[in-house]
Design a binder for these strands. Structure first.
Length: 329
DNA sequence: ATTTATGATTTGCA
DNA sequence: TGCAAATCATAAAT
């Protein structure tokens, strides 16, 4: 008999399935190659995106977004980010209020530039009341001039500030849109967007600080120009000159007002006692220099005084005290 | 642009 | 310290 076993044995030889690989380790090299290539390509496209025209870029973006590898790329980026974000964690610094900026802000408010719009400024009001004992057209004129200039500065300041504010907002929304759009392609947390916004604001606020700086400078210059006595001399008001001249020509024989008289004149003219003294010193020396020419003026004021005396005699005015010194001559 | 008027400062005197 | 005189600096007029 035959040997079925043999047959069996031979027959049992497992058939070699050609071309049939055990599943699993099949084409790792085979498919990895094109994937790498894809990513490189995609990255290249991303890099090039800024060089392209808008329409083109739009189209490319679209194809990128629809690319079958996009989710993979996204997750890779996520992974990378996961690793690096830890190192970025602590870059979250508290925003310390800049002392310099606060100084500028305080000053602008104090000067009435940054504060309430039509308040007129506390400083101006204070100095105004300090000098408001007697009606003083002189100071009032100077003050209104000062106020006008200050208002001008304030207007420009607010104008510029608003401009910056607007530009900042515009830029911020622009960047936010950009980031939001990019967040479809790469992972961006809201925190990051917030941080970016903060950075932008910081940049713009530094520009604003420059504005505040120069505004402060302008205010300082304005102050020194108007409020410093010596810098820019201002003539006394017509009224003050009248009063002084009347006194001078009424006391031509002895044009040396006493301390009390000086105070009275200072009060009436709205200037200081030392200014009165200075005025009389100048007047005396300049009168003496050319008595002839001053004679006309002397007559003028003598006539005025006479007229005033007559007016007083018929209807006494509420003005009192030292004024009566002008009566005799 | 130049001159004059005028308020402020400086100097020296008593 | 208060003043005269000279001088400075700027506003106002020419």
């Amino acid at each position: 008999m035959d040997d079925p076993g043999r047959m069996m044995g031979g027959g049992l030889m497992p058939p070699q399935p050609y071309g049939m690989t055990p599943q699993g380790e099949a084409p790792p090299g085979n498919e990895n190659e094109p994937r790498k290539q894809d990513i490189g390509e995609i990255l290249q496209q991303i890099m090039n995106i800024t060089d392209q025209s808008l329409d083109e870029a739009q189209a490319r973006k679209h194809t990128l977004n629809c690319h079958r590898m996009k989710p993979a790329l996204f997750s890779v980026l996520c992974e990378i980010k996961e690793k690096t974000v830890l190192s970025l964690r602590n870059t979250q610094e508290e925003e310390p209020p800049d002392p310099q900026l606060m100084r500028l802000d305080n000053m602008l408010i104090a000067e009435g530039v940054a504060g309430p719009e039509k308040g007129g400024g506390a400083g101006a009001a204070a100095s105004g009341s300090a000098a408001a004992q007697a009606g003083q057209p002189d100071n009032a004129i100077e003050h209104s001039d000062y106020r006008a200039k200050l208002a001008q500065i304030r207007q420009i300041y607010h104008q510029e500030l608003e401009k910056y504010e607007q530009a900042c907002n515009e830029f911020t929304t622009h960047v936010m849109n950009l980031l939001r759009e990019q967040s479809r392609t790469r992972p961006i947390t809201p925190k990051e967007i917030e941080r970016m916004v903060q950075i932008i604001h910081k940049k713009f606020s530094s520009i604003q600080m420059q504005l505040k700086q120069s505004t402060c400078e302008a205010v300082m210059i304005l102050r020194s120009r108007f409020l410093d006595a010596r810098r820019k001399r201002r003539n006394f008001s017509k009224q003050a000159s009248e009063i002084l001249n009347e006194y001078f020509y009424s006391h031509l024989s002895n044009p040396y007002p006493s301390e009390e008289a000086k105070e009275e004149l200072a009060r009436k003219c709205g200037i200081t006692v030392s200014q009165i003294a200075s005025w009389f010193a100048n007047k005396r020396i300049r009168y003496k220099r050319n008595v002839g020419q001053s004679q006309e003026e002397a007559n003028l004021y003598a006539a005025k005084k006479a007229a005033r005396s007559a007016a007083y005699n018929s209807a006494p005015s509420p003005i009192t005290s030292m004024d009566s010194l002008g009566y005799y001559d």
